[in-house]
């Protein structure tokens, strides 16, 4: 089990229900892979330092979780498919 941080930037035009559904699908992937989510939520809505897919703003959400090492790859795959998430990154944290 490793500790990870998942940062995902959701498109600024999304409303709360979309953000919630993204959160749900993320925690589903994690729990299916045998991990557990310790913290999840919107960090802040902020201007991007550069445009991503013509968006100048984004909703940053952070999920902190513990899981086996195969989960980040699956998360990567799921988030790549999503159109609402314009950028994501899974970071391994020092435990």
């Amino acid at each position: 089990m490793n500790k990870y941080d998942l940062v995902s930037i959701v498109r600024p035009t999304a409303d709360e229900s979309i953000v919630d559904s993204i959160h749900k699908s993320i925690s589903e992937v994690i729990s299916n892979g045998g991990g557990n989510v310790s913290e999840q939520g919107v960090w802040q809505r902020r201007k991007l330092a550069y445009e991503i897919d013509t968006f100048k703003e984004g909703i940053y959400t952070i999920t902190t979780f513990e899981s086996p090492s195969n989960v980040p790859a699956e998360l990567d795959r799921v988030l790549k498919i999503s159109d609402d998430v314009i950028r994501h990154k899974v970071l391994k944290m020092e435990s």
């Binding site: 330092a49 550069y50 984004g58 940053y60 950028r87």
Partner: peptide, 24 residues
């Protein structure tokens, strides 16, 4: 470098970053 990937900090820009960042 991590912050750059997440668009928290710019990659090298031509204009002054802090100015253009505040203007937006």
């Amino acid at each position: 470098k991590v912050a750059r990937e997440l668009a928290l900090l710019p990659y090298v820009t031509t204009s002054s970053y802090k100015q253009s960042y505040n203007r937006r």
